[in-house]
Amino acid sequence: MTVEKTSYTVSTETSLSFEDAVEEARGLLQEAGYGVLSEIDVAAKLGEKLGVEREPYRILGACNPALAQQGLDAEPELGALLPCNVVVYELGGRVHVSAVEPQAMLSVVGNEDLDPIAGQVREDLSRVVERVGETGERR
């Protein structure tokens, strides 16, 4: 299992089924202190609105209340960038898990008080992505 990093995400593949990967990500987020505030079934919505079919694609909007509070205290308009998204999708029959890179996302704000918060979120979300990949390898 390899974790890949881009300028705006950290991601991996998993051998878990799509639904198992969604459930694993949800459980690991909860263990890390994040609630899933929203869940968007992108494939279903695009099918409903545009009549297109695509492979499964789910967005989990995750939030750690304590870190969100700290961030909002430092930057009241931070809510425009919340929650942090974790994405599980299937591409070519392979399941991928990806999370936003919070340090890159929050760098647009230009508030150094957010740096330690972004660092903590980055560590947490990177660990979730990595563990979903590892879980697939162990099964």
Rank of each mutant, 00 (worst) to 15 (best):
M1Q: 11
M1I: 12
T2K: 14
T2P: 07
T2N: 14
E4S: 14
K5Y: 14
K5F: 12
K5D: 02
K5G: 02
T6N: 06
S7T: 12
Y8A: 04
T9D: 07
V10W: 05
V10S: 00
S11T: 00
T12L: 04
E13W: 08
E13I: 05
S15F: 05
S15Q: 12
L16I: 07
S17Y: 04
E19F: 06
D20H: 12
A21R: 12
A21Y: 09
A21V: 01
A21T: 00
A21I: 05
V22W: 09
E24C: 13
E24L: 09
A25S: 13
R26I: 09
G27M: 01
L29W: 12
L29M: 11
Q30A: 14
Q30V: 13
G33N: 08
G33M: 01
G33P: 04
Y34L: 08
V36D: 06
V36Q: 09
L37W: 14
L37Q: 11
I40S: 00
D41V: 06
D41I: 07
D41Q: 10
V42F: 08
A43W: 10
A44W: 00
K45V: 13
L46D: 01
G47E: 14
L50M: 15
R54W: 07
P56H: 00
Y57L: 12
R58D: 06
I59Q: 03
I59P: 00
A62I: 12
N64A: 01
N64S: 07
N64G: 00
P65Y: 11
P65L: 05
P65E: 10
L67I: 06
Q70R: 15
G71L: 11
L72F: 04
A74I: 08
A74D: 11
A74Y: 03
P76C: 07
E77L: 13
E77Y: 13
L78F: 04
L78V: 10
A80T: 12
A80C: 02
A80M: 15
L81E: 04
L81Q: 02
L82Q: 03
L82I: 02
L82N: 09
L82V: 05
N85T: 08
N85H: 11
N85G: 03
V86N: 04
V86A: 10
V87H: 01
V87G: 06
E90K: 13
L91G: 00
G92H: 07
G92D: 14
H96N: 15
V97W: 09
S98R: 13
S98E: 14
A99H: 06
V100H: 08
V100K: 12
E101N: 14
P102Q: 07
L106V: 11
S107F: 05
S107M: 11
G110K: 11
N111Q: 10
E112V: 03
E112I: 06
E112Y: 03
E112F: 08
D113C: 08
D113P: 10
L114A: 01
P116T: 00
I117D: 10
I117N: 06
G119N: 10
Q120E: 13
V121R: 07
V121C: 05
E123C: 08
E123K: 13
D124R: 09
D124Q: 02
D124Y: 01
L125W: 10
L125R: 09
R127A: 13
E130N: 02
R131I: 10
V132R: 03
E134I: 02
E134T: 07
E134H: 01
G136V: 05
R138N: 07
